[in-house]
């Protein structure tokens, strides 16, 4: 390919009119030829107003979690690295949740206060936050096959998806489903018989196909996670 008329080549590249071999040649040349790089930038900007006429469409709620699950982990300070998670592909989450912060602790206080006023106390309360550290839900585990999850944010669920609540009673048991959330703000779950929930036990909510995870283990993106606290 001859790089004589850079502006013309840049236009055809930006319009997607080059065949795959030419396209690859342009990309390779642009990496070492700033003039071509700049010509491509100018061509992109010339046509940009056409893109801006595209009316934004609704973004599916699971698109960001799908992206996030594919992001390579950033550099981790080993000293700060938290213990392994039920889904150990999302280590970064733990750093987030550690800082997830003030809002979470305030909510925990409210959640605890609220739960203390009731006749039956949960054995543990877990505040679940998303990766941005925003509080999404509170799980109260009463043990004896009883737990309540309270959603604190609106979740726009596609018709074919459901939210599933999990806990990790022990590493050996692995994640166990506590039940599905039908989208209501507060849902009574009927978990299987499990060991008495302990302090710092993991709880999480994942997005799963309607009817729940087909494998019995979390398969979808994690929407929120948190550690249990014992009411004191």
């Amino acid at each position: 390919m001859i790089f004589d008329d850079l502006e013309a080549i840049a236009d055809e590249y930006v319009l997607g009119l080059l065949d795959p071999a030419e396209q690859a040649a342009v990309e390779a040349e642009a990496n070492r030829n700033p003039a071509l790089q700049q010509a491509i930038g100018r061509a992109q900007d010339r046509f940009l107003p056409l893109d801006m006429t595209a009316a934004p469409v609704p973004v599916p709620p699971d698109l960001w979690p799908r992206i996030e699950a594919r992001l390579s982990p950033a550099k981790v300070n080993r000293a700060e690295e938290p213990p392994p998670a039920a889904n150990d592909n999302r280590l970064r989450f733990w750093r987030r949740s550690a800082f997830g912060g003030l809002a979470a602790s305030l909510l925990l206080a409210i959640g605890l206060g609220w739960s203390l006023m009731r006749s039956v106390e949960p054995l543990v309360v877990a505040v679940l936050v998303n990766e941005a550290g925003e509080v999404q839900a509170v799980v109260e585990d009463f043990g004896s096959e009883r737990a309540v999850v309270r959603l604190l944010t609106d979740v726009g669920l596609p018709a074919d998806r459901t939210l599933q609540v999990w806990t990790l009673p022990s590493k050996d048991m692995g994640p166990v489903s506590l039940g599905l959330i039908d989208g209501a703000s507060s849902t009574r779950l009927d978990p299987p018989s499990l060991p008495r929930p302990r302090d710092a036990q993991l709880y999480e909510i994942t997005l799963e196909p309607a009817g729940g995870s087909p494998t019995g283990r979390p398969t979808g993106p994690i929407l929120a996670k948190g550690f249990a606290k014992l009411p004191r």
């Binding site: 700033p34 790089q37 700049q38 491509i40 930038g41 100018r42 992109q44 900007d45 940009l48």
Partner: peptide
């Protein structure tokens, strides 16, 4: 140099 951020 590569044009606007939006274009990129």
């Amino acid at each position: 140099d590569r044009g606007s951020a939006r274009g990129w």
